[in-house]
Computed example of a mutant assay.
Amino acid sequence: MPSNVICLRGETPLVTASDWNNGISDYIDSIPDWEGGQITVPNNGSIGAAFYQPRPFSASRDVTILDPLKPISPAAALFICTVIRKEANRYNYARKWTIGRMRETILKLPSSGGKPDFMKMEKLVLALPLGWSLAQPHATSIAQL
């Protein structure tokens, strides 16, 4: 989003190149650009701070959106975010993790038959302490408390 644009406070999360608060820097009065279920990765600022976005959102131009070909579980997405974050140390402000470099990056993920094994990723995350909380429906978000 250009720096000279003034946004009114609203309900749509604005994901920027931040490594805090799931990458959300503000809430804007705008229709979301993305429906949720994507992974966001800053390619400027907090490079590689990958986050899963569970709800509709908008993003600044400093963020690359990874949109799965098929829906994946939040637990599998968090596994992938962790692997992406491990790649981030190869990049910095002078050597940005551009979309071109992202396409060349090989992520080492559990696989089966040459394809990513999302079920195994999900099981690994759900087996962690507090992993069970990802499988539970949440009626109230922290922002509503």
Rank of each mutant, 00 (worst) to 15 (best):
A75S: 14
Y91M: 11
E87C: 12
Y52C: 01
W97V: 11
G113F: 05
A50G: 10
P68V: 03
D33R: 10
F79K: 00
P32C: 06
E35A: 14
F57N: 04
T98W: 10
T98P: 06
M102Y: 02
K115L: 10
K70T: 11
F79N: 03
I80N: 06
R90C: 13
G45Q: 13
Q53G: 04
A88I: 03
P116G: 00
L66M: 11
R101A: 08
E35C: 11
N43W: 15
R95A: 08
L66H: 03
G37I: 11
A59N: 08
Y93E: 13
W34T: 01
E87A: 05
P68K: 01
S60F: 06
T40Q: 05
T82N: 12
L66R: 01
A49L: 09
F51V: 05
Y52D: 04
S111I: 00
A49D: 08
P110A: 09
S60G: 15
S58G: 03
I47G: 13
G37W: 07
I84N: 12
W34V: 00
G113P: 02
N44V: 11
F79H: 10
Y93V: 05
M102S: 01
T64P: 00
P71H: 01
Y91W: 12
I47Y: 09
R101M: 12
A75W: 05
T64C: 06
F57I: 03
T105N: 03
M102T: 02
D62I: 00
S30P: 00
R103S: 07
R101K: 13
D62T: 08
P71Y: 03
F51A: 14
L78K: 07
A77R: 07
E35D: 12
K70S: 14
Q53Y: 03
Q38W: 12
L66E: 01
A59C: 14
L107D: 02
G114A: 07
D117K: 06
P54Q: 11
N92V: 09
